[in-house]
Amino acid sequence: MISIKNLHANIEGKEILKGINLEVKSGEVHAIMGPNGSGKSTLASVLAGRDGYEITEGSVVFEDKNLLDLEAEERAREGIFLAFQYPVEIPGVSTTNFLKTAMNQIRQYRGEKSLDAVAFLKLMKAKMKLVEIDQALLSRSLNEGFSGGEKKRNEIFQMAMLEPKLAILDETDSGLDIDALRIVAHGVNSLKSKDNASILITHYQRLLDYIVPDFVHVLFDGKIVKTGDKSLAMELEKKGYDWIKAEHGSLETI
């Protein structure tokens, strides 16, 4: 589905990603772990097409398309979804209105007819149940005054509505209490199919108790330095990141 080869990226002249290689196939769940500042969120941003990053080397192919050539909105229309670490508050724009616009632009891009109001509402009702989100919340301004948990649930709700091929969840577990974590994980698990894939970016093994990954990668100093299965996450939880740092020695202390 997505094939990342030797990806190097700079921000303001500073190299953050130093040669990432990652292959994700349909039906797979990949977890990317790593200490603060290792480049996890940068990888998510680069894949989603955020401005301000300079790609100096490497390639990303998503479903036979050169992803790096596409604008952020085109990537979304092709089926990439980024659940934000910090969802943005947009006063005056309701989630409902915003999602309707987004869905119809995606459908238009794919040559499908726009959803009428009834069909849209019906779909919304079904997906709302999945993440236990309230109608009242969705008619309010997007994320404005939402609690941390509500914001993250709203992200998963949007993901459920847009049904992406590849979902990148950037620290969706951070700032969640146990109940919210369970709801979010339930949402993600229900959306999983053999035709889609997800990349979970996380600090903690905790989320992986709920969403079981097929692969766990450790990102350190801009590179994937270790790949394993779920047991690697357990090992990290027990031993911390120090042994990784020692193995791959960095001058910076983090």
Partner: peptide, 15 residues
């Protein structure tokens, strides 16, 4: 607000 703009674009809405 560039952050807000990116958020909307990342959902498939044109610039």
């Amino acid at each position: 607000d560039e952050e807000a703009l990116f958020y909307l674009r990342a959902r498939g809405i044109g610039k």
